[in-house]
Each structure stands twice: as C-alpha cells, then as structure tokens.
Amino acid sequence: MALSRELFKPLQKRELQIEIVRPSVTYWQDAWRRLKKNPVAMGSLVVIIIILLMAIFGPMLSPYTYSEQDFARKNQGPSAEHWFGTDALGRDLFTRVLYGARISLSIGFVAALVSLLGVLYGGISGFVGGWVDNVMMRFVDIMYSIPFLLWVIMMMVYLREIMPENSGLIAMYIALGLVYWLPMARIVRGQILSLKEQEFVLAAHTIGASRTRILLRHLIPNCMGPVIVTATLAIPEAIFTEAFLSFIGLGVSAPRASWGTLASDALVSLKSYPHLLFFPAAAICITLLAFNFLGDGLRDALDPKMRK
C-alpha cells in the first residue's frame, strides 16, 4: 500500500508530549477527602454531633430536671410527656439520659485530652532514646502488666474515700487520667523510633537540619495520623470503662446518673420495666458505635500506606 509522503515527515521534538499532571494535594486535604467519601464515618460524625448538641442543650430545654421526683408517676412507660418514661422515683428518664450523655461525653473527652499527654511522654522517650527511653518505658511496661481496669478500680476505691462529696465524677476523671496516656505514649514512641530510622530523616540529617527542626518538621507531623486515631478511639473506651464501673457501683453515684448507673439501677426491675434499661443501654451502644466507626474511618483516611 502506498501512503501519503506527509505521513513520514518527522514530528517536531516533543510535539506530542502527553503530560499527566494530577493536582497535588496535601496529606490533610487528601485525608479529609477520603473521610468524606466514607459514608459510615461521616454518618457517625453527624450522630456524634447530634449527641453532643443534645448533651449540651437538651437539659436546658427539658421541662424536668434530672433529680426532680414525682411519686405519682413512677415507673411509667414512654409517653408524650415523658419520652423515655419515668424511673422508680418518678424522674424523667429522657432528662436523665441527657444528663448521662454529659457525664459520659465529658469523661470521653477527658480521656482523649489525657491521651495527648502521652504524645509528649512517648515523644520524649522515643526522641531522646538511650537510658532515658529505657527508664520511661519500663515504667509504662509495669503499668501495662495489669489491665487498666484494675488500676482504675484501685484508684476509684481509694478516691471515693478521700473525696466522697462530688459523686465520684472528679474521681473518675483522675482515675482515667492515670492510665489513658499510656497507650498513646507507646504508640508515639514506636512511631518516632521507626521514623528516626527512615531515609527522609537521614536525608534531613545529612543536609544539616537541627534536632529541633527534625523533631518539629519531620517526626511530629508524621505521627499525627496515629495520634488522632488513638485519641478518637480513647473516647469510646473511656465511656465504656465509666459505664462498666458505674454498673458495678464504683462510678458516678446518686443523685447524678451516668448511663452505666442508669442501666445498673434498671437491673432490679428489669422484669417489669425493661424500658428503664433499654434507653440508657441504647444510648451507650449508639455512642460507642459512632465513635468506633469514626475512629476506624479516620484510621483508613489517615493511614498513608493506603494512600494511592
């Protein structure tokens, strides 16, 4: 076959270069984009915000208070006046569950805040290294050798004796604060140790970056993903622990009521008035579920290994 001569003329150099330029996105934009694409995590975030708003504003809008008793209307089932019914002392269960949300959420956030202290501890331990690291980590190991719950129980047994007046809430903050920095310390130390070995840190050393610069610019930003995930997952765990302790009578006590206390109180009359158990239990489950899903979603979004 004869083809047109034109076809065999050389092309101008690089005339037909096909550039594939993808827009560059920062780590955080990328993570946020991925989180937004995860419907379960976003749904959980919405649920958490609703629970949060209800915990803050709900009690103000409710016509009842958490301790107001009405013996004429005790153990009522759910109705238009009392959405969740009333308890054995005629208190409005909906209002009490809302107050419970305040307690549970505040405990969750205290745990998350305390866990940030662990960032400092683990960061110093991992960055300084040597005997300092050794001593600091042996302490953490010892704390780890028995379950946190036992530490917290010991603390609570002691604290409620020395500070009986504030219904155990402050005691609970302190007891949880004692242990919730530990997992974070371990994770951050591990991160820092492995990051220190990586080529980009070595590269920073070779171009003469200072230790502070390496810590601030290279190590800490690269730890942020796991830190955020761990802090988020500390929230449901602390809520869980509080409910557990309140359920066995070591937590927040009357007249205040957390979800665990409400569930525990409902146990006596479970046979006749299951709604007293159902609502606080549902509140606990929904909250735990939402935080766990959000944590999982964040893990997926922030894990650079999965970055495409």
Partner: peptide, 22 residues
Amino acid sequence: STIGIAMPSFVIGTLLMYFLSY
C-alpha cells in the same frame, strides 16, 4: 462484630436475661 464491640457485656447480659429467661 461491630455490634459486639459497641455492646458492653452488661448490655448483652441484661438483654439476654430479659428475652431468654423473663
């Protein structure tokens, strides 16, 4: 497994008790 993780043992326990025995 997600439900299992979000449900404290006392919730599972009391629910079981309510339905299976009461």
